[in-house]
């Protein structure tokens, strides 16, 4: 035999990744839809270092090979993330699909990736030579283009461990299960001493990558709720002007309309 490598440790996986032309295979749910002939898979689904979930002072660490079902049952995974990943496809897919795979597939429809954008998550990328930690939005260079070197693997997702308790999340799919997102929205809100400290809004499945406009968010940062309410129309207007959406399974107009509704609802939910 044959064409394929089964890694039992991260070191082993990185060694193979550095020396062979392989495609990392974690859950297989995306790769196997096409299963392009001639590919050599590096099976990393059981690498212990990639299967961990733990919390430190700053972050919830979710291993790239942790499946969605495992995360749903893990008390350390934030509720917002759980809500999103419990809407992915159906149980059998969630039993196999992983966080790393959702990222590595490069799609703007990836439900866990939306949450990573909305929460300013970071990714730990590793290679035999070392590791680097980057912001999730820097990882996406464009449609299906990722900042991942040929010898690198996604090791972990680092979600902030605090400050993402207040959120709004909606997934619009074609039906209630087995549905690819047609529009998805996640908003995270935080305030301290009456002033807004975070008002992140991320839009999935409406463009080549997940969209987030931090400069527009700044309009409301540091403001009180009352001040923000005054700015609500300007803020929404700014989004409306900025969001140039593409069409997919649904039209650009539909995407835009729904995005604006959900953004407005997010503001309303937090009194703005």
């Amino acid at each position: 035999m044959v064409d394929g490598f089964i890694a039992n440790s991260l070191a082993e996986a990185l060694e193979i990744r550095a020396t062979q032309d392989v495609v990392p295979y974690a859950g297989g749910t995306d790769l196997m839809v096409v299963n392009r002939p001639g590919l050599t898979y590096l099976f990393i689904g059981k690498v212990p270092e990639l299967k961990r979930v733990f919390v430190d002072e700053q972050y919830v660490h979710i291993g790239a090979a942790v499946t969605f079902t495992e995360a749903i049952h893990n008390p350390d995974v934030p509720t917002l993330m759980k809500e999103a990943i419990s809407r992915i496809a159906a149980p059998a897919i969630r039993n196999a699909g992983t966080f790393g795979g959702n990222l590595g597939n490069g799609s703007a429809k990836a439900d866990s990736v939306l949450i990573e954008f909305a929460t300013d998550a970071k990714l730990r990328l590793v290679s035999a030579k070392g590791e680097r930690i980057i912001d999730v939005d820097k990882f996406y260079l464009g449609r299906k283009k990722l900042d991942l070197a040929k010898d690198e693997l996604i090791a972990e997702i680092l979600l902030p461990s605090k400050g993402i308790e207040n959120y709004a999340y909606t997934k619009v799919g074609g039906r209630n299960a087995l549905a690819i997102s047609r529009v998805s929205f996640a908003g995270v809100f935080a305030s301290e001493e009456g002033k807004i400290t975070n008002i992140a809004a991320a839009f999935g499945a409406v463009a080549d990558t997940v969209l987030r406009y931090k400069d527009i968010e700044e309009m409301l940062l540091g403001k009180t709720i009352a001040e923000a309410r005054e700015l609500r129309q300007d803020y929404l207007q700014a989004y409306s002007e900025r969001m140039v959406l593409t069409r997919g399974r649904v039209s650009a107009e539909y995407r835009k309309g729904v995005c604006m509704n959900l953004l407005g609802d997010f503001l309303t939910k937090f009194g703005i």
């Binding site: 159906a90 074609g174 039906r175 209630n176 299960a177 087995l178 549905a179 690819i180 399974r249």
Partner: peptide, 12 residues
């Protein structure tokens, strides 16, 4: 395909 032609699931 079944991802583009949607028929009802148990949850619909």
């Amino acid at each position: 395909s079944f991802s583009d032609y949607l028929i009802p699931t148990t949850k619909d």
